[in-house]
Design a protein around this nucleic acid. Structure first.
Lengths: 341, 341
DNA sequence: GTGAAAGCGCTAACAG
DNA sequence: CTGTTAGCGCTTTCAC
């Protein structure tokens, strides 16, 4: 692989001139520049920009998500990418698979990559260990979707999960759908915590008590069909299931159908995020819609702000509203107006 | 940000010893090692591994896809990641959005990253320009899903698109579903070309001629609803639509429903890739199933092989079989056995 | 406009 | 086991 020296020799100039052709072309005589450029072409010269360790970094943002198989996270990615591109940054996507160990490895790798900054969906509360990697190396970081308790040192963008969950459950209760079984991811995250709090809020409003037995925990990435055997005994006809995300909701839906239980009459399925973006499936009647794309753009904006003002001590947490839609997706849905928390 | 020298000074050793603690710890006296390690901790030392330009590279594979919003590609990503991890490699995902310009930029960025190798879903035939980036820099590369005509220099893993398309169309014809309108991505790719060839093969088998007017081209990422106005005039009741992928199929499905056309009676929708992984939607009756996860693992395997034998002149193209399923997803589908091409 | 010298952070190669 | 020297590919500084 040819180096700057090689090009310089071929063009009959010093390595310095070659360097300048790359970084400050207008300081080089046009004729010389041409000679250098053709030399580069002929030798297939590839600058190893990485070496300029001391100088400018790589203008690139690393986005670390829990599961890039989940459309929710790829929508966030689209948002981040869009803003990044507009500001001349590239973006790389990294998957942790909800696994703290992979998360650790990814962050180490990213740190060595010298990315300009990181936008991060942490696996869960245990991610406070991995947070040290970023904190110690002073990597500008923004959390999305989930917070890490005890680590207030990052900017963050999340949804108003508590209010969203409360609205969902209130709607179910108002429609006399009971009992309500909640299906949550078994990872300990702020998202699950907040949605359970919202559930309790709604129950409390209706003077009902919260029964922990009515919460079923599932694998956050592959909920499988296993679920139904756990859910069924708790949901007689006329009840409802509150799924924490679109993957779980779809799994519940399929499991129900296989068990010959038909939503929405037999059981009403409510969920965060629309599991049916094409509106081709009847049966989902209460959906709390986040705006993952916006979560992406906003977190990228926060990161860019921090890249420009690295020493601003003020950390901000942006809480985006959730909109709740009632009615079959094929009909035009009615929306519920929510008071911000 | 502290450097090796700083750590060395603090620990009272030479920079070399610090370096060794990182790369060959057992060559350093345990006591010294401890001192160095604590010094590192205290100073929050972060090694800039990137600098070792001349020595070992970053053990990481870059996967470049056309649209990470499409589950098909994230399944490929899962496959790649799995194999990469097993061999001690990291993986980064890069999105081109089917845009040759973004593709160009991504590949440049990746090249400077000094990734060990690249697995790449090229945007289309125009990607031959971008291919030069990789070829000139001698980056080990494997193509997935799509080939680039005129660039035989890469290993590749693709599906048997022609046979799959032929099987789909033959099935439709056997069920007397006509006319058949094909909905294809408007990007010029080997995938679309091969699937159209398969369509023609099937028609020829039934002594029918291929009418280019019966092909509708749509945006490969956001097919929108616009489609239906183009499709409708060409598909009277009893006809069929052959969608080139799951995104297009879902769009067609929704458009049909909005126009009060009901699959599968009014129109039969056949497609590559199951647009309904949860089996909750009735109406898709012929589905050509690729194995994106396997495409990922196989391409990663090819890449690893090449990383170990960089000079093997033999390039291989792996063509994976496609399985065609007939019948509603909610019923147990019958499979058709296909002869490999 | 151009070049020579010095140095970025780190690691092979050779002493000791 | 540890340190010295030299050099990776490139850029900054300061000459000319």
């Amino acid at each position: 692989m040819s180096t700057m020296r090689d090009v310089a020799r071929k063009a009959g100039v010093s390595p310095m001139t070659v360097s300048r052709v790359l970084s400050a072309p207008n300081l080089v005589h046009p004729a010389t520049r041409e000679r250098v450029l053709t030399a580069m072409d002929e030798m297939h010269y590839v600058p190893k920009q990485v070496t300029k360790v001391s100088s400018s970094e790589v203008r690139s943002i690393a986005l670390v998500v829990a599961d890039f198989t989940n459309p929710f996270f790829t929508q966030i990615a689209r948002g981040v990418e869009w803003v990044a591109r507009r500001h001349g940054y590239g973006m790389t996507l990294h998957n942790t698979g909800e696994d703290p160990e992979r998360e650790w490895e990814s962050l180490i790798a990213i740190r060595e990559t010298r990315a300009s900054g990181v936008i991060w969906v942490p696996c869960g509360d245990t991610s406070s260990m991995s947070a040290r990697i970023l904190l110690d190396a002073d990597v500008p970081t923004v959390l999305v979707d989930r917070l890490i308790p005890g680590v207030p040192s990052f900017d963050a963008v999340i949804s108003d999960n508590r209010i969203g969950a409360k609205a969902i459950v209130s709607t179910l209760l108002a429609n006399h759908r009971q009992p309500i079984v909640a299906v949550m991811g078994q990872t300990v995250t702020s998202v699950v915590r907040d949605r359970l709090l919202g559930l309790q809020d709604a129950l409390a409003d209706h003077h009902q008590t919260f029964d922990p037995n009515n919460v079923v925990y599932c694998d956050p990435i592959h909920p499988k069909d296993v679920l139904w055997s756990e859910i069924r005994p708790r949901v007689p006809s006329g009840g409802a299931v509150f799924a924490w995300n679109q993957i779980a909701a779809s799994a519940v839906f399929r499991a129900a159908k296989q068990a010959n239980v038909h939503p929405p009459e037999d059981v009403m399925i409510a969920t965060f995020d629309n599991p049916d973006p094409y509106g081709i499936t009847p049966g989902f009647f209460v959906v709390a819609q986040q705006d993952p794309y916006k979560m992406g753009t906003e977190s990228a904006n926060l990161l860019l702000r921090r890249l420009n003002q690295p020493n601003d001590p003020l950390k901000s947490t942006l809480i985006l509203p959730v909109s709740v839609h009632v009615g079959s997706q094929s009909e035009s849905p009615r929306s519920i107006v929510l008071e911000p928390s």
